[in-house]
Design a protein around this nucleic acid. Structure first.
Lengths: 338, 338
DNA sequence: TTGTAGGCGTTATCAG
DNA sequence: CTGATAACGCCTACAA
């Protein structure tokens, strides 16, 4: 049986209340008494039971995290960023995986609630009205990371990168390098921020450059190597005139694209330029080294965690969307054809 | 204020005890009463407070995880495996990151204890006597994953791959392909399972094949691309006769090795064969496609989680080391020179 | 500055 | 089968 506050009180010859006060420094206690109690606590290696404490204070110092895929390096970086600030501020992480399925996400919202977490950092695929309503009925704060709400944007506090702008910049970068026939191979349509918004950025950039959109140069699928490979294959087979460049929804997709191209005897970047998205560690090791849009998921996690903790601490914050800057990284997969 | 068991009892016109019984199905309750209570619970969406419950039952259904690096894909896969079985069995994961630092690990052992987790899955770098002693004084079970104890092996329940055998097999594979001058570039010496043991496997294989060990063909450093690059560079510069093959401690190291070799005009695998370790997703996308030793960290996590839950459930298990099988994967970086 | 006692939401023991 | 009631370990008015 672990030592309790009562044991300490007894040994120190004081009341439980007094011990509690010195532990929490919540009310003045004479310094000699304080020292005596501290010594006894130290000696017995006493640690207050956090369950009992949480029962009263309604605080557990646990923060819940919901991500679609724990083993995906994007979310790995995100969680690392979250953990860095949380652990520093005395919070422990409860990490869960949703598979991106909304019913699962709703379930996890409850599982974590049952665990009495102080707040949640939520990375979803499509944070729609239903999900938001669900979140708002909870008695803990939740912050969106990596993904903004697809419905009623601005209602939820959010930390993301500007997906539209990021892909806009990527596309613009290719245009500035002389490309006009630019394809897009990106993530799924259901994925609001990473699917829809990125596509939008692509379209906007073409529009601003007065380049006509060509439907057969747009493919949407999974965020996978295979999807990139197959998407490029389809495009290759269905277009008599190939694009000179392709914007992709992720580095993994880009790798699949390049894999197909190389296999088909199309040289990257001599024949076709390719730009990725995310800037995974491996993108540097890939051959040819992948040009991409660097996103700091680590930073997003850290900022979101900070924001959440502020709210937990009672700071009155009006919901807003924080944008973490991105950066175009030029490596070896883009050719200037001006 | 959330609804409590008292509210349910009142509305159902029964005692709190009765409600508790129908919830936990711990003692017979007349079926009509049971139904009435269930209905009211349903209607009010009542969920027992897990803190209060845990206070009494000494069970939280939380499992703690300690890994050196959350964003490392190896541990990503491990955690995913752990989570799959834990979530299925009603456990939630508390994930922490140690940086591989022993003092940090000891601290986390306490942080998690304070959270009243039911048990811990521990992935360390060097699980020495001090750490084991620390673990054994805790009042919760801990299972080692990915790493066996460096001191007093067999004392702790452990789930790992056989590092010695795995690298032995890798080295043997090269020998069988006609190689005799085989180098080793692996992880740090402090790392017991992944550093020391893998080196041992290499040495054993050479010994069994009656190949003399050459000190200048052995490099130990970090598990990083850079370490692989620099290790190979050093070896390249210090040996007049290059090896015909190199065994590495990880895929990342192997990639660094190949990067240097390629840059130095040495062709892989025509001039030098290389074999990695882990089989990361990216090893297939790498050029040339990396031959490697496949380890299923996912399985290790799943098995370890299962084992831990058994212990938590009171099954009396004698500590043992479970080995998860590995597999040599031949791709494009090994040449048969027989 | 310190102590008493009630309560947080459950489970578990003991009667009936 | 069902109901009081004492824990579980701690915090926090309220008194003193």
């Amino acid at each position: 049986m672990a030592v309790t506050i009562a044991d300490i009180a007894r040994e120190a010859g004081v009341s439980i209340a007094t011990v509690s006060r010195v532990i929490n420094n919540t009310k003045p206690v004479s310094s000699d008494l304080k020292n005596r109690v501290f010594d006894i606590i130290e000696k017995n290696n006493f640690k207050p039971n956090e369950l009992a404490r949480g029962l009263i204070t309604k605080k557990t110092n646990i923060i819940g995290v919901i991500v679609p895929d724990i083993s995906n390096s994007v979310f790995g970086a995100l969680i690392k960023g979250i953990n860095i600030v949380c652990s520093k501020k005395g919070y422990t992480l409860m990490v869960t995986e949703s598979g991106g399925d909304i019913n699962n996400e709703i379930k996890l919202l409850d599982v974590l609630a049952d665990k009495k977490i102080d707040g949640i950092l939520f990375a979803g695929i499509n944070v729609n009205h239903k999900l938001i309503t669900e979140m708002q009925t909870k008695d803990y704060p939740v912050i969106l990371v990596t993904q903004e709400a697809s419905d009623g944007e601005g209602i939820m506090d959010t930390v993301v990168h500007d997906n539209i702008k990021a892909v806009y910049d990527a596309t613009k970068f290719l245009i500035d390098n002389g490309h006009k026939r630019i394809a897009y191979i990106g993530g799924p349509k259901i994925d609001y921020s990473s699917g829809k918004k990125r596509l939008k950025g692509y379209k906007l950039a073409l529009e601003d450059a007065k380049i006509k959109l060509i439907d057969s140069l747009i493919e949407q699928g999974e965020f996978s190597f295979q999807a990139g490979y197959l998407g490029m294959k389809k495009m290759y087979e269905e277009n008599s005139v190939l694009p000179t460049a392709v914007v992709t929804g992720s580095d993994i997709i880009a790798m699949g694209v390049i894999q197909f191209l190389t296999g088909a005897g199309v040289n990257v970047p001599d024949d076709i330029s390719v730009i990725g998205f995310d800037d995974l560690e491996f993108s540097t090791y890939f051959k040819p080294e992948l040009s991409t849009v660097r996103i700091s998921y680590f930073d997003e996690g850290a900022i979101a965690a900070n924001e959440l903790i502020k709210i937990i601490d009672g700071e009155n914050i009006t919901p807003q969307t924080h944008y973490v800057p991105h950066k175009i990284i030029r490596r070896s997969t883009i050719k200037n054809i001006n």
